[in-house]
Nucleic acid binder design. Sequence first.
DNA 1: AACCTCCGGTGAAACGATTTAGAATCCGGA
DNA 2: TCCGGATTCTAAATCGTTTCACCGGAGGTT
Lengths: 348, 348
Amino acid sequence: MAITPAAGSPRSASVKDVAATAGVSLGTVSNVLNRPERVSRTTRERVERAMVDLGFVRNESARSLRTGSTQSLAYVMLDAGNPFFTDVAQGIELAAEAAGLSLFLCNSDGRSAREGAHLAHLQQQRVQGILITPVDPDDPQLDQLIERGTPVVIVDRTRAGSSFCSVAVDDVLGGRLAVEHLIDQGHRRVAYIGGPESIGQVRDRGEGARQAWAEAGLPPEDLITLSCEAPTVACGRAAGERLVGLPARRRPTAAFCANDLLALGLLQQTISSGRTVPGDLAIVGYDDIEFAAAAAVPLTSVRQPRHDLGRRAAELLLDEVGDPTHQHEQVVFTPELVARASTLGRPS
Amino acid sequence: MAITPAAGSPRSASVKDVAATAGVSLGTVSNVLNRPERVSRTTRERVERAMVDLGFVRNESARSLRTGSTQSLAYVMLDAGNPFFTDVAQGIELAAEAAGLSLFLCNSDGRSAREGAHLAHLQQQRVQGILITPVDPDDPQLDQLIERGTPVVIVDRTRAGSSFCSVAVDDVLGGRLAVEHLIDQGHRRVAYIGGPESIGQVRDRGEGARQAWAEAGLPPEDLITLSCEAPTVACGRAAGERLVGLPARRRPTAAFCANDLLALGLLQQTISSGRTVPGDLAIVGYDDIEFAAAAAVPLTSVRQPRHDLGRRAAELLLDEVGDPTHQHEQVVFTPELVARASTLGRPS
DNA sequence: AACCTCCGGTGAAACGATTTAGAATCCGGA
DNA sequence: TCCGGATTCTAAATCGTTTCACCGGAGGTT
């Protein structure tokens, strides 16, 4: 049974206290904690008993100060409100758990300032390594982390000729897949609905869309690009209203959205304004989040291997941390189109 | 410009190194960091210059070892994949940011073992305090945290006669609101679709539903309870199939789901099987996550003040940390029904 | 001239765990 | 009896930062 420490200043017990009550030396307590096999059964049990009785909690600050390393990783997410990133995080978590490390999640929420604050703090904490989906992969703060000895793995982005590992999905290919599919379905006027161009994913998917369009020999002006402030559900709805505002001859019969949040917003706005999907407007999303399949008109989407993305990123980081001969690696996964009702059916 | 430390073992610079290159004593460097106003302008600038040149990064382990406290809070979430909890986390984050503390998010994913591991690790890290939506609010590990001096605030649950602060929403009332609304709409056979009874939120919402039903004088057997394995979209779909399997005379005309994930799954299954919402089945969800309003049939849902929940919880924790005369407080917010298309319309 | 006060700065101690070298103790077996 | 191996001990150093008692000098007051 745990003994409540005396009132007043219940300063938590230290190894010294444990050693005293167990009647052993300081080094033995440390051995029980770190190399239990070197300690005889009886002594070990006596020490463990003392730890329980005193409510001993190892002081991780002291431990990591002395050993120079912590037992944690961190993932700095771009947007914790987007299920895509929470799924990536889950993949990372599983890998971290398997390696016996704990994972801290931080949310930059798309803001550079927050991201910077998180990175600075994590660096001060001396986490073993950082996974990040950066606001801007070229941010010099990332190089600085590497220079100062904190391994960094970039998730869902790549960086040219880079000195980090990264794990990404081929966004240009994803954009092509989406638009090729729409062309296959007979669409000849398509909108690409992206977020701000500052987001690399948005740029690349749009680039893929344009490539597919050009290769099909279709006139560039029939691939309309709409930019939104942010890739969110609300912006998707707003985009729907902008589409309706177009003159009928310019109005697209299909839309490819830079992510599923936009697509869901667009889907909702379209249906609630009395038009049908895919009859009046076919919609392709991106990410294939769980809510995409669950939409009332199940959403065609470009699936990314979310869990694998996270898991692989974590593995690379763990390798970099553990293996001095580590070679940086740029992993690129291949996306896959999942066709569902929102595009399957007669085009207008 | 930053100078890359010599190759080999780029052991990061310490205050001692900074002191040496700036030609001052150790204590002065510390003063620059912690009480800059006590240091003359010229000295301060010289020290700051040295820090930049050496790429000095303060070692948080050493700092917190010495001072006995860290600059961080943590929120242990029940399910990072549920947008409800990420919104709560965002509320917490804003409050933490305002107080100049950083927030670590951990995900227990509904598993006690993971939750326990996270708590143990956070305790070892000596975080200032922990916010948690626990798998089981009566877990003795929570008491143990308090006993050993780590303040804990329970989020989205309460605990009878408790020695912690907690911030929750009245789930019984929420359940009543949902079912009263369905009764108002003329429904006389209703299903309550919950997750496992082990989840307190599920129990309470069901209890509210039964109360409303009884008070309306309706026969208990016409309020059917379906339990799912987990409150997820997939389970919501499965529940939809089970409803269809019921004999027509027993089949409910409306369903109240314990959260929006279930409701969205049910909505999808219902529509894709050719029935209409709310015509054949009215649906009420719970949480009012963003995707609820964005569903093709916008979902009636019980709204919880997610951000306020998080913000208030963080404020209570900060008060407990900072104010020795702190009194524990059990805050209970009031939920609100948001009626949308999924229930508005003629009942069958 | 003696005294006091600020200001800016110094240097050593402390936080708690880990690690190491060298020695002591105990055991059974040769 | 002596030896080898296993187990534990003592004592001390170390990690990087913060804190605190103290100190020298500038300036002002009596």
